[in-house]
Design a protein around this nucleic acid. Structure first.
Lengths: 214, 214, 214, 214
DNA sequence: GATGAATGAGCGTTCATTCAT
DNA sequence: AATGAATGAACGCTCATTCAT
């Protein structure tokens, strides 16, 4: 009680718990998707339900935190990889390949890849959007190098990524290398040799889908 | 025995109910996906639980019936549309467009589009597979006309369709015409101008993913 | 409508249906006990639910009818058998043996053998009680021949029969001849060599259990 | 971690609940048999459904626990009573009397008394079988004292007990002392004065009913 | 701060009985 | 009179969240 380090110890403990929860949740969500029982996460974390709910007042909060973490580290790795690659076209291709090889195994990640569009006003500001800067960087560089259709937007690439993520999920158990074919098709479709402009995001009108996109 | 219309009258009424259930279920499943409460379907059908379960002994049976119906009419419409179109490339494009415009609004349909791969041995013989013949026909014709990369399989096209269906789901509320862009990219990627062969479905070995592929 | 035989034909038809229902119900109740689904009975009868419920306004009514029938034919057969047997002791033994061999296979019969005591005022006047006269006849004759403890009542014998019926049910699948041992024990216990009087049915007081007992 | 009493305190409360559930379940099962609604048990326990299902993951588990408890205390009491009684014949009689007086009121107990035979391989290892040792002890002692027919097995006694339990159930409401008469008859039938051997459990053949019998 | 027991609305399903035809 | 479809309360069970300790 009077020990001034008690508070600190608590803090440290709490922080350890928080991390344990996130880590366990990450594993479980990767394996089983976001429909898992919260108990399973608590069990794997080694903490009680109360602790879990103290740190994350809602299952959704936990989910969001985990996904933010995943997307953040993902974005970081992607950024570094991009910086190491000189050829912008190859950088883009490898970004997709790595994403689909290493991230699309994570069921909850893939499940929520589309949430940025599904519920853009929902309290999920940071998730898919964390990836946006990297994708945009890759896009800009590829564009500058003439390695990408000129009117491809970041959103386009993000949506293609999400879509191919679903393909990975669908086929991973029965035909794990299948997605490489669809990826190739998409990448080829992004080739600047295709000169016809892509359809407008909207017909005009007011609802121009919010994003600046380009 | 007795009035020959008696049996039929009953039948007619029951059939009306059956259809009402399927219709309501279809609507509900389209809106909310396959996780809905059966009671909601019963409510919207205007029938009691017992009636629903008399017609469909299991929620899954109902689901399957609805989806089979949906896929069957879809396949029929696609077939007719294909027959009316001379240009094989345009036929393929319009198949995708119609599919994504009219079918991909249906949450349960999209949810189950990947089940052929996820659980190929599951008791869902007729669903995605109902579409296979049409896709294969379109593919063959496009191939013959030199309007498609030579090694594109029916599976490839089905997976692209499923993937783009997810894009529709993701964007339909916030940017309903968005998917047309990703579709264009994919279609362009299918162009025979891309001469490099697609990656093999598998690395060799025994697990060649089962499908003949086409 | 005007045909005077129409009514009769209906009657005949109805009677046939009624008998079909009873017969099917008997079979089903014998096999599966009184917890069966009424639909199963209707199915096996070849009639619709409405017909079944027209003849028997309640599952319980049907049950009662079936059981009354069973008990009646049983009682008749037992009566005839008793008349054919001179030795009263043997007659009693064979009554028990036949009952347990041939009747105790009927699950619903055994289940309801005790209902005479469980709910004596219930609307089940005729069931176990249909057997009472035969048992009483056997008892009287055995008593007269000095082949039975003097104060054994008809109720005593009926209860022993019900109890042994349970034994048959318990053991029929795993040890089908087992009940003969317990029957022997009971029969031996009924031997007049046992001179000590049986306990009084009640402690006196008013509730003398209703029966005259015999 | 932390207060060592914390775990225990919870435990104590949970234990109280667990006991409350068992007690309430015991009462309800005694009154209404094993077909009761689980909600009724929860209600009477004063706990929610979740609590009940936390302690007993299945209705069957609860049932089993209650019955095991009931049979265990019963067996214990019977054992102690047997040890206090010198006269083996009287010990056997009093065992039956106590069993029928105090245990056979319990509907679920009586319902499951026959399950050892009905479903010997079912997941009910401990129930009727808990009683076997006591019965066997009583039998052995009675046999040694020449107070029992020589070829009476433990199974015979258990089946007689189950059968008489049914008699208690049948008569308890309308003639609560009735069973004493049938018990006397059975006990008299067990007298070694009856020298004729009991029928064999089986006709020979292979299916010798599994039990060693004793 | 941590614990994990408790809560209860909700889910998929069954079945005795009623009723339109 | 016969049919069998319709009804809906009830059942066994799950799980996101709360709360006493």
């Amino acid at each position: 009680m009077g020990d001034p380090r008690a508070g600190r110890a608590r803090r440290a403990d709490a922080e350890r718990n928080r991390r344990a929860i996130i880590e366990a949740a990450n594993a479980v969500l990767a394996e089983q998707g976001s429909a898992v029982d919260v108990r399973e996460i608590a069990r794997r974390s080694g903490v009680g339900m109360g602790t879990l709910y103290r740190h994350f007042p809602t299952k959704d909060d936990l989910l969001r935190t985990v996904l933010e973490g995943e997307f953040t580290t993902w974005a970081g790795a992607a950024h570094r990889a991009a910086d190491e690659t000189d050829d912008p076209r190859r950088a883009l291709r490898e970004f997709f390949e790595n994403a689909l090889e290493y991230r699309a195994r994570h069921r909850a990640v893939v499940e929520h890849c589309g949430s940025a569009w599904t519920a853009p006003a929902a309290p999920e500001p940071a998730c898919t959007h964390l990836l946006t800067p990297v994708i945009d960087e890759l896009r800009t560089r590829a564009l500058a190098a003439g390695a990408l259709r000129p009117d491809v937007t970041t959103e386009d690439l993000a949506l293609l990524l999400a879509a191919l993520g679903q393909v990975v999920q669908m086929t991973t158990d029965t035909c794990p290398r299948m997605w490489r074919r669809q990826l190739r098709i998409c990448l080829d479709g992004l080739d600047p040799a295709h000169t016809e402009p892509l359809p407008r995001r909207s017909d005009g009108g007011d609802g121009a889908c919010g994003g600046a996109g380009g």
